[in-house]
Amino acid sequence: MTTDDAVASPGRAARRRDRRKAEMIETALQILSAGGYQGMRFEDVAERCDIAKATLYHYFPSKDALVSAALEKLTTDVLVQLTAALDAAAGQSATERLRGLIGEQLRVLTVLYPEVGTLFSFPAPWPEEHNEAIKTMRRRHDRLFREVVDEGVAAGEFDCPDPAVALHCLHGILNHASIWLRPDADPDGRTRAAVVDESLRLFTR
């Protein structure tokens, strides 16, 4: 082995570990979205990843550690997508920024990460130790929408009587739309655009 190979090997090993860990987290998300917390077993994750259960424990000491990592990754990925949508609409009106945010949220729920809707649309039994983390994730998500809505209210673009209620209704619309709106049923995106337009009506009289 050359000196360069000796230096590169630890880097390659780290990348392999990262890829394997990412696969475990992705598999856990798929199982969580299908069966919820109670339906996710370590054995199933290990089997789908084609690894020994002991190997899974090497990366995650418990089921809850894996669930926490999966939820955090999902939340981070979604926030990255929503933030990118806001950045793309920088300098535009609050209405257009909210339009972009709603459209991206709908795309996330129906195209990129359909498991988000499954996991968070409706109340589900979660162990107490995850409740605070899930609340924090929701707050991080809702803050992006609230900031744009507050800007729109301050600018006189939005005149809804109660922005907080309008935001709750907005998330209800998007979560339910994620159940029936799928790309194969809306190839030209017209239905998705209509959902965005109707959602914006919540913020104007």
Rank of each mutant, 00 (worst) to 15 (best):
T2A: 05
T3I: 12
A6K: 06
A8Q: 07
S9Y: 15
S9H: 13
G11V: 07
R12W: 14
A14N: 08
A14Y: 06
R15A: 05
R16D: 12
R17G: 13
R20S: 15
K21V: 10
K21F: 03
A22D: 09
A22H: 07
A22T: 13
E23C: 09
I25T: 10
I25K: 00
E26C: 08
A28H: 01
A28G: 08
Q30H: 07
Q30N: 08
I31W: 01
G35S: 05
G36L: 03
Y37R: 00
R41S: 09
R41I: 15
F42L: 09
E43I: 10
V45R: 00
V45M: 05
E47D: 09
E47I: 07
E47Y: 12
R48W: 02
R48S: 04
C49D: 09
C49I: 06
A52D: 15
A54Q: 10
A54D: 14
T55F: 03
H58W: 13
F60Y: 15
S62N: 00
D64Q: 08
S68V: 09
A70H: 01
L71Q: 07
L71I: 12
L74K: 00
L74N: 10
T76N: 15
D77V: 12
D77R: 00
D77M: 05
L79F: 07
L79H: 06
L82N: 04
T83H: 08
A84R: 05
A84S: 14
A84C: 03
D87Q: 07
D87N: 10
A89F: 04
A89Q: 11
Q92V: 12
S93K: 00
S93P: 06
A94D: 05
T95Y: 14
T95V: 10
T95N: 09
L98I: 11
L101H: 01
L106N: 02
R107N: 14
V108N: 09
T110E: 06
V111K: 01
P114L: 08
E115R: 00
T118L: 09
T118N: 07
F120L: 13
F122V: 11
P125S: 13
E128A: 15
E128M: 10
E129S: 11
E129R: 04
H130W: 05
N131Y: 08
E132T: 09
R138D: 11
R138L: 11
R140Q: 13
H141N: 15
H141L: 13
H141K: 03
D142E: 14
R143W: 14
L144N: 08
F145D: 08
E147P: 06
E147K: 03
V149D: 10
E151A: 13
E151L: 05
V153M: 04
V153Y: 01
A154K: 01
A155P: 08
G156A: 01
G156L: 04
G156I: 06
F158S: 03
F158I: 10
D159E: 04
D159W: 01
D159P: 06
D162P: 03
A164K: 00
L167I: 12
C169R: 14
C169Y: 15
I179M: 07
I179Y: 12
L181K: 00
L181D: 08
P183V: 07
D184R: 06
A185R: 12
D188N: 15
G189I: 13
R192S: 15
V195D: 05
D197H: 02
S199H: 02
S199D: 03
L200R: 00
L200W: 01
R201W: 08
F203N: 06
T204E: 14
